[in-house]
């Protein structure tokens, strides 16, 4: 079992909080920054999982007992590479969304909205009023087109 120093724990908490907040935004650019920040938080956590700071794990430089645990560093390096790849992918996706629809915001699911409005009690079986449906459809379309 390892205990963590408070500064590091606080740093990780702030990184996670910021990351999750940004991840909940609609703009893909903010989501991207959120992923990067969250990735930093996770990697820091991985580093801390290896124990307190110690000498770099290079053979022959320091006595073996002073060496830090190299495995979390290898894991963090792999995670960094993966985050790097995903960051570039999200950048490309955001740019593609920007070219295609003029902005990079994640929008609502139109079909889901349509089904949701179908089940409203106003659209009752006894009085299949088309106007209600159409009004609902218009509502959905105006939502989608914003």
């Amino acid at each position: 079992m390892i205990t963590v120093n408070a500064t590091m724990a606080l740093t990780i908490a702030v990184l996670f909080a910021t990351g999750f907040y940004l991840l909940l935004q609609r703009s893909l650019m903010r989501v991207l920054i959120g992923v990067v920040v969250l990735g930093h938080g996770t990697n820091l956590l991985l580093q801390l999982a290896g124990g307190p700071p110690a000498a770099p794990p290079i053979l022959g430089t320091v006595p073996a007992e002073a060496i830090g645990d190299p495995l979390p560093q290898a894991l963090a390096l792999t995670a960094v590479v993966i985050t790097f790849a995903l960051t570039t992918f999200l950048l490309a996706l955001g740019y593609r969304a920007f070219v295609l629809v003029g902005h990079d915001e994640v929008q609502d699911d139109i079909e889901d909205r349509r089904i949701g409005t179908q089940s409203l009690p106003t659209a009752s079986l006894a009085d299949p009023d088309d106007e209600v449906d159409e009004a609902a459809d218009d509502d959905v379309e105006s939502q989608a087109g914003r």
Binding site: T42, N43, L45, L46, L48, A49, P72, L75, A79
Partner: peptide
């Protein structure tokens, strides 16, 4: 990844 860090 967070879960892995905690497990480790």
């Amino acid at each position: 990844l967070t879960a892995i860090a905690l497990v480790y």
